[in-house]
């Protein structure tokens, strides 16, 4: 009797049991964090007027450290970025100087793309900045997903509201809708071609669409993804930047 009462009165208890947000996000984190990671990326920045394509080599360690070097096109080759914790530096080869990025500069698109430096900076778990609720199930590109709604704890976050679709099997956040406080849709971030690499699931392609502009999106395609390459400390240092 007591069990029936409980079953009927507690919200969210359907036939299928929903995971808790806490639980789910922890698993997502676990999948996306790695001791070390290296990959090659091709970034295509598509705008109504023209499209620019960049290639870069990227390294990552843990959640806090990431280093990238642009390989092409020629005018951008040699440009490097280093993230440590919540600090971001850029090395500009043509003037041989290191520039620290902070404040409003972080909200700009990297290389003019729809991925902002801040977007890339994101490391710490969403749970730190948002309160999350699992809202149910959904589908994305024929994948069954859990849907979550995240609301920012503070107002100074770039995207106060996020709707996330997490693929049930790969635990990759295959789609995110990023909203402003007003409810306006700012960006849509999707991940495709999820593959299993060295025991983890990683998307081979990401697309970020700027919903505030027409026909504006950035697509990143990855190759040579590896999670076990040993990386020296030096890679994540200032010296590496200036070399």
């Amino acid at each position: 009797m007591m069990q029936l009462f409980l079953a009927l009165s507690v919200p969210g208890l359907h036939a299928e049991e929903l995971p808790t947000a806490q639980d789910l996000l922890a698993k997502v984190d676990a999948n996306m964090t790695f001791e070390s990671r290296s990959l090659e990326a091709t970034m295509e920045v598509v705008k109504p007027k023209r499209t620019k394509t960049y290639t870069l080599q990227s390294y990552g360690r843990g959640a806090d450290e990431a280093a990238s070097e642009f390989l092409s096109p020629a005018r951008d080759a040699g440009t490097k970025m280093l993230k440590r914790g919540d600090e971001l530096w850029m090395y500009l080869p043509s003037i041989e100087k290191v520039q620290k990025l902070s404040g409003h500069m972080l909200r700009q698109g990297m290389m003019g793309s729809d991925v902002s430096y801040e977007d890339m900076m994101e490391s710490s778990s969403w749970l730190t900045h948002y309160t999350a609720t699992v809202t149910g199930s959904g589908e994305f590109e024929d994948q069954a997903c859990w849907t979550l709604e995240l609301k920012a704890r503070q107002d100074d976050v770039s995207y106060p509201v996020r709707k996330v679709w997490v693929a049930k099997d790969s635990l990759v956040p295959v789609k995110q809708e990023l909203y402003a406080l007003s409810g306006m849709l700012i960006k849509v971030w999707t991940m495709h071609d999820v593959r299993e690499i060295e025991g983890r699931y990683y998307p081979m392609r990401m697309r970020i669409e700027d919903k505030l502009q027409q026909d504006s999106y950035t697509e990143m395609r990855f190759a040579n993804v590896s999670f076990s390459v040993p990386l020296e400390d030096e890679v994540f240092s200032q010296r590496w930047l200036e070399r």
């Binding site: 920045v45 705008k47 023209r50 620019k52 951008d76 850029m90 500009l92 043509s94 003037i95 100087k97 520039q99 700009q108 698109g109 990297m110 290389m111 003019g112 793309s113």
Partner: peptide, 16 residues
């Protein structure tokens, strides 16, 4: 003189 501007695509553009 080192100036940090932008390209028309929005990427950082330094000039010396």
């Amino acid at each position: 003189l080192v100036v940090l501007g932008q390209t028309q695509d929005g990427s950082m553009s330094p000039v010396k």
